[in-house]
């Protein structure tokens, strides 16, 4: 097992713990954040704020170093245009997120409950991802 595999595994463990601790695995809480017009629960702004507060300075440091610790190069996405695909896809995602209160990370983590609604949601999500990759794959 090489260092990159260990790093990815530990990252997955921490990611899962963070999602659960933050409250993102409660769809009603997520919808309470999205619903600014009603009784607003600002908690999830703290999730995104906290995550970026850690990630942003590390990105700057690693970029200055030019390469990660255990690989020859960084694998950042190549800069691409802001196009209809990006905006349209984000609209569809936002509607689905608003309806279900689940985005992909918390949905995968919540599979651990074994609840049928979550399994159905994740199955549909994976079908959606798979179909787009077959029918209209990204050019990168």
């Amino acid at each position: 097992m090489n260092a990159r595999t260990v790093v990815a595994f530990v990252s997955g463990v921490l990611f899962s713990a963070g999602l659960v601790l933050s409250g993102m695995t409660h769809p009603a809480k997520v919808q309470g954040f999205l619903d600014v017009s009603g009784r607003w629960d600002p908690s999830l702004a703290f999730v995104m704020g906290g995550a970026i507060a850690v990630m942003a300075p590390i990105v700057a440091l690693v970029r200055r170093r030019g390469r990660p610790l255990f690989d020859a190069t960084l694998h950042e996405p190549k800069p691409k245009a802001i196009d209809g695909r990006l905006v349209g896809g984000s609209v569809l995602f936002g509607v689905g997120w608003g309806v279900g209160g689940l985005c992909p990370g918390p949905a995968l983590v919540s599979l651990a409950t074994g609840s049928l609604p979550i399994v159905a949601f994740v199955a549909a999500m994976l079908v959606g991802i798979w179909v787009v990759d077959r029918v209209s794959p990204s050019t990168t």
Binding site: L92, F121, V122, A123, G128
Partner: peptide, 8 residues
């Protein structure tokens, strides 16, 4: 909702 999230 799951389909929309996946496709989107």
């Amino acid at each position: 909702a799951g389909l929309l999230v996946g496709v989107g």
